[in-house]
Design a binder for these strands. Structure first.
Length: 132
RNA sequence: CCAGACGGCUGGACGGUCGCUGUCGUGCGUGCACGAUGGAGGAAAGUCCGGGCUCCACGGAAGAACGGUGCCGGCUAACGGCCGGCGGGGGCGACCCCAGGGACAGUGCCACAGAAAACAAACCGCCCGCACGGCGUGACGGCCCCCGGUUUCGACCAUGGGCCGCCAUGUUGCGGGCAAGGGCGAAACGGUGCGGCAAGAGCGCACCGCGCUGCCGGCAACGGCGGCGGCAGGGUAAACCCCACCGGGAGCAAGACCGAAUAGGGACGGCAGAUCGCCGGCCCCGCCCUUGGCGGGAUCGGCAUCGGGGGCGCUUUCGCCCCGUCGUCCGGGUUGGUCGCGCGAGGCACGCAGCGAUGCGUGUCCCAGAGGAAUGACCGUCCCGCGGCGCGCAGGCGUCGCGGACAGAACCCGGCUUACAGGCCGUCUGGCCCC
RNA sequence: GGUCCGGUGGCAGAGUGGUGAUGCAGCGGACUGCAAAUCCGCGAAUGUGGGUUCGAUUCCCGCCCGGACCU
């Protein structure tokens, strides 16, 4: 996970982001973002509740969210608009595991701008070639 | 070919791009890069059993309580598992199902119905006797009265009625015999048939069941044959219980090691207020004609007294408790890190023994180790199934769409149970057709 | 990782082998000028699959769901 920064692990960290951050619900996921005073790389955490399904469904949901975050954050870094100084929590939803992957990438990109974690200057993103 | 029974296997394939993680190697910027290589299951699940391992407890142990298991033999490290038998039940059959020890150790329960529900009895009923009984009906005999007819006047035929006797039968009561039949029920002192009897009854007999017993087969559960006994007396133990056997407790968050800053605990030592108080040790000086004593000074310790700050007891008087700094050592311990943690009751192949579970031998292989928790994300081609459309007599071919299960290791192993799209293999049973 | 409880009408909640209470809610009726309260009546349930038993909400076993506790 080196390319996507540090992980959020402790329960207290998740609660702090939920309490003080900005929330952006999307069809494929819910993003919570909270600014930090420093400019270190973004820290990521993932939440998938038992409501989503059994262990297989929950793990698959987390993997797709991780992959989507990895691809989008790397694209922004290559573009010179790296997402820094922020804690992000991605929450899986019922449909996350079945949502078409390009749509999931788009959900996450839009959520980043909605929460202000990424500059909202750009209208649209060039599509990420799958498996690039 | 159809229907079915049982056992076993499998549960997508190939490729591309981008990622995650263990190990090994190289490099240096010591956590990164590059290369090589490994990376979920038959149930990884439920946590229903059995073990290994670790810690705790304990003199070996035994017992109580509690819990579990329960036909016999075998397998196994062990088991509540498996295999092979036995007994019972179901199916035409292959085959399937069964907690299947003990009801003369004791206790409890058996609703409703029924006379009666467990210890003996008798509601209806059957039979005998008595009431030489009463009543009803019928037959017979005797006597009397009466309608009518015939008449040889003796009588005869015939109708209705009364009384008496007697028999049969029904009914009522009492006494006795019986338990076959009826009826109730899930269950009622064994079942069927024949004989027998006043009526009946294992009362007698045959067969079946049951109990006891002998012999034979079997390691055993059990089975077979024979003899004896006329039946020895309900069910329920997945009701309490009795008997036999098994079980010490906790669990990898077990447990072991390392351990920063800061804070805090304990022990020891040094230094820390005052007093012309008392006692003691040591050092110095002076005197006393000396292995000793006296006086003075300095220092240390103990005791006593007086004090400082804080808290509590109602404010005071008063009482109780706590309180400095430095050094060394010991112990505990938070976030965290390392180990435990991957060679094992191991996988595969072959052979041997055994009906089998399984065991033995030989060869060969090393095969996941994460920690907000890796083992993936996306795409393409193929495969399989279903559906639509087109072509074709048909087998089929082409094309499009949809779908491809249950499910994710967390110390490990042996079982059980539960979930599971589809596919494959083998053995067997019943039926139909053809040769 | 381990242990222990529970599941009964729409809701709450009794029932220890034989017929499943009761309250609230709902519906209908009575009462009232109309309501409320009150009275009368009605419907509706044993999580699921097996087993033991003559008979199971109850006893036994397997699943499903919910909850609690310990480490």
């Amino acid at each position: 996970m080196a390319s996507s920064g540090i992980k959020l692990k402790r329960r207290a960290e998740f609660l702090r982001v939920a309490a003080k951050g900005t929330k952006a619900p999307m069809p494929g996921l819910v993003l919570q973002a909270m600014r930090r005073p420093d400019e270190a790389p973004a820290r990521l955490g993932f939440t998938v509740t038992k409501k989503v399904g059994n262990a297989v469904a929950r793990n698959r949901t987390k993997r797709r969210l991780r992959e989507a975050a990895r691809l989008v954050l790397r694209r922004e870094a290559l573009r010179g608009t790296a997402v820094t100084g922020v804690d992000l929590v991605l929450i899986g939803r019922d449909g996350t595991a079945r949502r078409p992957f390009p749509a999931l990438l788009d959900d996450f990109g839009r959520a980043l701008r909605r929460t202000g974690a990424l500059g909202a200057s750009r209208r649209s993103d060039p599509p990420i070639e799958p498996g690039e």
